[in-house]
């Protein structure tokens, strides 16, 4: 059996807060794989640790513990030369589109930057720049323009072109369409699907938009406060989610259909997200969970097999109780 292209094992990224004491456990024990040519989506609400997970994979944020493997090789703690070598295999499209491009650089120079860093000769680099511009549907006449002369959708094409310049096998896409208007969003989603089909790229696709995720992803990971609440193949998770948080998320998607929307039962969560500085010891979702039992406040559930994949919920999946798991192992 071939190994998955990207493997993330029990990744933790903790931010100690200077002065005040305390630690933000932004990512707290996350494991998953991204197989070659597939799209795995990381979803969840603001602050749940999606971007931090991405940064740790790219080595832009040091992992507190855990392991990241690319193509079977441990890349958790690479030096600068190692990172540079890896840039040809793995690239990221950052969340903030306005910060992603240098306003003073031309489009061609922005796209060619990773090539220059890798020491490409200028003639070869120029050919490659025009090839990837063509790939993402940017007219060659844009090469000499600066980003402010481009629309939001065109700028996002530039950012994707730059990420593709070194022919990576994995693209980490952090909210690649969130800042775009709906009519432009579908253009970029089509582009991403086409590129994957043509080039066999793997995507780690980060988004809080579940309709988009359902459309594009093969597999979905639902994060909540630094941990994975539920994971599984897209169809079963959307058809019948196991975790009450996933259920609430799916029921909260506003459907662009007044008839269906008015017929739908919506789960409205009460309670507040705990402070990331004081995540409770039990289930992180317990403060807002409609199913919470006393045990949920005490014991942190672990991911256990569910009908739709894996879920970490004590009430829905008894095997998610770590004590039950230990007892079963002892027997």
């Amino acid at each position: 059996m071939t190994e998955p292209l990207l493997q993330v094992r029990d990744l933790r990224v903790h931010f100690p807060l200077r002065g005040r004491g305390g630690v933000v456990k932004a990512v707290d024990g996350v494991s998953f794989n991204v197989p070659a040519g597939r799209t795995v989506a990381l979803v969840g609400e603001s602050g749940c640790g999606k971007s931090t997970t991405a940064y740790a994979i790219l080595g832009l944020e040091p992992a507190t513990s855990g392991e990241v493997r690319f193509d079977g090789r441990d890349i958790t703690r690479l030096d600068r030369a190692g990172r540079r070598a890896l840039a040809g295999d793995m690239q990221i499209v950052f969340q903030d589109p306005s910060a992603a491009l240098d306003p003073k650089m031309t489009i061609a120079d922005s796209i060619g930057e990773p090539l220059a860093i890798q020491g490409w000769k200028s003639a070869a680099a120029a050919r490659r720049v025009f090839a990837v511009m063509d790939l993402v549907g940017l007219p060659a006449s844009f090469a000499g323009r600066t980003p402010n002369a481009l629309s939001g959708g065109q700028r996002q094409r530039v950012v994707i072109a730059r990420a593709l310049a070194l022919s990576p096998r994995l693209l980490v896409l952090d909210e690649p369409v969130s800042a775009l208007d709906v009519s432009i969003r579908s253009q970029i989603l089509n582009l991403l699907m086409n590129l994957q089909a043509e080039l066999g790229l793997a995507y780690l696709f980060i988004s809080h938009d579940l309709s988009v995720v359902r459309h594009i992803a093969d597999e979905i990971l639902v994060m909540y406060l630094g941990t994975i609440a539920e994971r599984g193949l897209t169809d079963p998770v959307f058809a019948a989610p196991t975790h009450p948080y996933t259920e609430a998320l799916l029921s909260a998607i506003p459907l662009p259909d007044p008839v269906a929307q008015r017929r739908r039962r919506r789960i409205v969560l009460t309670g507040d997200l705990p402070s990331p500085l004081a995540i409770p010891p039990g289930c992180p979702f317990a403060t807002r969970c409609p199913l919470a039992q006393p045990r949920c406040v005490e014991v942190r559930p672990v991911l256990a097999p569910s009908p739709s994949g894996q879920a970490a919920c004590l009430v829905r999946i008894p095997a998610a109780d770590p004590d039950a798991a230990t007892r079963a192992a002892q027997r």
């Binding site: 579908s186 989603l189 359902r214 459309h215 959307f238």
Partner: peptide, 24 residues
Amino acid sequence: LLLATIPRLDGRRKEHLRTIEGVV
């Protein structure tokens, strides 16, 4: 067209989405 570009929860996954060509 605007309504047609939005991915639907009951739509066919990975299908080409409708687009509105050009920009505002």
